[in-house]
């Protein structure tokens, strides 16, 4: 059977990585792309510009805590912020399925406007396409963003070293479990709410307080914290140890994940950031993150360790056991019973 694209190829896990590494990056090989950052760093004369893009195909369009419009702004803005850039402007491209209610479109666009204002970015260009009914699912949105370097930010995988601490800026899994609870067929009542928000205050607080002691930041979106931690482990060639007892996870998120057999570490977030900071400044950085509204529940969840053989992320469990935190496959399947 010839190989075909499967849903898991877009899930942010191992299959996504394989698709990008084998089929996409080699064709366009250049040092900027190969850095594989959340944003590309481009030198324009004597200034560094940051550039990123992302597409949004979330179903349902509206969910508790957000909608596709809000997500399309914060998702791209956050990719700039975690790369150590202050967002300046974003584009907005809409692919709309024939038959979408105009009211729905207006509601989404209003949400885009509110989020852009909140994030301090202007929508400066855009595009609109419509496709036949059935050729898209209501609406798909693409945004691209540009930003300029945040003063004091010196972020890269190769600055990470053993001893550094890992901070997460709040509860894990809120967005992914909310989306799943909304999807067709999952009929449980809950108070789950997406964390969809800008991570600007947290990123800026960390960098302003600790400067170059902040080594790396990434927003754990698709594939959750498990993907981000594995990316750090592989790219920085280090082991990582995290502690289950200190992971910030809401009871409702844990309960929903347990019911479906999911690991919260593999569930998407849309308003959180994972920060790697030197051990010396970890407490100070945590304090600065906690002083922000978005980062009030920040926690130090683990430590960067010397690599044994191949890079690995390990979880120390509540009962004192240890287990690997693997890069997820890309499409988490609810269990049978």
């Amino acid at each position: 059977m010839s190989k075909k694209i499967m849903l898991a190829h877009g899930g942010g896990g191992r299959l996504s990585a394989e698709l990008i590494d084998k089929h996409i990056v080699p064709r366009f090989a250049n040092p900027i792309l190969e850095a594989m950052g959340d944003s590309a760093k481009i030198q324009i004369e004597d200034k560094v510009a940051f550039f990123t893009t992302d597409s949004y195909v979330v179903k349902p369009l509206f969910f508790n805590g957000g909608d596709i419009g809000k997500l399309a702004v914060y998702g791209t803005v956050n990719d700039l912020l975690v790369a150590g850039a202050n967002p300046i402007a974003i584009s907005l491209s809409l692919i709309i399925e024939e038959g979408l209610e105009m009211d729905v479109l207006d509601k989404i666009l209003d949400s885009v406007a509110i989020a852009a204002k909140d994030a301090g970015v202007k929508i400066v260009c855009g595009d609109t396409k419509t496709v036949d009914a059935g050729s898209a699912d209501e609406i798909f949105i693409n945004t691209a963003g540009v930003g300029e370097k945040m003063a004091g930010a010196e972020l890269s995988f190769d600055r990470i070293c053993p001893g550094d601490k890992i901070i997460v800026s709040g509860s894990l899994g809120d967005h992914g479990m909310t989306i799943m609870s909304h999807r067709e067929g999952m009929k449980f009542e809950s108070d789950l709410k997406s964390d969809c928000a800008s991570v600007a205050s947290v990123c800026k607080a960390a960098v302003e307080t600790c400067g170059a002691d902040v080594k790396f930041m990434r927003d754990p979106t698709r594939g959750g914290a498990a993907t981000t931690l594995n990316e750090i482990s592989v790219s920085a060639s280090v082991d990582i140890e995290i502690e289950e007892a200190v992971l910030p996870i809401k009871d409702s998120v844990q309960a929903a994940a347990d019911m479906l057999g999911f690991d919260v570490l593999e569930i998407a977030n849309e308003g959180k950031v994972v920060i790697v900071v030197s051990a010396d400044k970890a407490a100070k950085c945590l304090e600065a993150c906690r002083a922000t509204q978005a980062g009030a529940e920040s926690a130090i969840i683990g430590t960067i360790c010397e690599k044994n053989d191949e890079p690995i992320v390990e979880l120390i469990t509540r009962i004192g056991g240890r287990r690997v935190v693997q890069m997820p496959y890309g499409r988490e399947l609810p269990r049978i019973c």
């Binding site: 469990t317 056991g321 240890r322 287990r323 269990r335």
Partner: peptide
């Protein structure tokens, strides 16, 4: 049960 199997691994119980 498979759910026991997974939770035994997930909680690191084997190693403990």
């Amino acid at each position: 049960c498979g759910t026991h199997t997974v939770n035994i691994f997930r909680s690191g119980l084997r190693s403990a």
